[in-house]
Design a protein around this nucleic acid. Sequence first.
DNA 1: TTTAACTTTCAGTAAATATTGAAAGTTAAA
DNA 2: TTTAACTTTCAATATTTACTGAAAGTTAAA
Lengths: 168, 168
Amino acid sequence: MSMHYDEGKEKFIQAWGTLGSAWGINKAMGQIHALLLISEEALSTEEVMEELQISRGNANMNIRALIDWGIVSKAYKPGERKEYFTTGKDVLELARQVSRERRRREIEPVMRVLEEMQQVEGDTAEVAHFKTVTKDLEGFTKQVDGALDKFIRSDKNWFFQVLMRLMK
Amino acid sequence: MSMHYDEGKEKFIQAWGTLGSAWGINKAMGQIHALLLISEEALSTEEVMEELQISRGNANMNIRALIDWGIVSKAYKPGERKEYFTTGKDVLELARQVSRERRRREIEPVMRVLEEMQQVEGDTAEVAHFKTVTKDLEGFTKQVDGALDKFIRSDKNWFFQVLMRLMK
DNA sequence: TTTAACTTTCAGTAAATATTGAAAGTTAAA
DNA sequence: TTTAACTTTCAATATTTACTGAAAGTTAAA
């Protein structure tokens, strides 16, 4: 029923990587994030390479990507030239950041396309149906987008209050 | 500023396919779903193949996958032996179904791993930190999972009320 | 400056994923 | 039954995506 640290660590990193791929983030990116999450100290590229058995190029590119997503940041150690990396340990803040990015990268482009669809011309039933469906999608997407925006801007208390109320 | 139906249709199918890949669903699956969404009539495998220019095997497999997800269903036309396929036009119901499946396929497995992590033994600071982080993730995941569950079981009114309240 | 510690890039390769099409399987009607 | 309309499977192939490692680029210290 118990488990050694190394085994647990391995399992967690694996699981986080898998979750990553299911969500369109790549595996290595998820694994690096997991590793930084459970590490109290900031890690260097070398250390990441070593722990995950991946190449320098791979480590570097995925660390960059995590920085782009705004969920990993650089840390310099006094007197050291090397770069180290950490990720915030606040899960809510992480969720917020991921929401922010996905909203920007995925929801917004699709919303723009859906809006455009109202410009389709023609008075056939086919066109009418097309516009109805895309308008519905647009309406729904807008609602979700608005809620997401609220979440992104909200503070901790607001979020947990909403969750609580939501679950009655 | 206006647009022909065929152009709009093409754009929409493309966008829906792209959104699909960003969400771990494959492109063809997204495109087939888009096509069924905007089609009032149920379509046959042949028609899907023709419209999207994909092979029989591809069409068949992805239609199956959509059925597995519970978002496409078979429809038989009277006197016809061939199978036809449709998808519900209710966007909220679609969202609910997708949430249900993702919850089952992704959230649940990761939650089980996170729970397991409390079984890690050892009294070092490292282990303590590991448990803290994974416990936080577990707590957050549980909350979201609960809210999702509520959403999945809820009706239309509840959902829009929540969204409204949420957006103040 | 030069050097050396470090980071980034990228062409080549490997791995994973999606797609094809023809053959095998199934089942309603003749 | 047989036939033929239809659906499913799956080995081969193509496409996409990820990864490597060495070379090029950068920058602090000597």
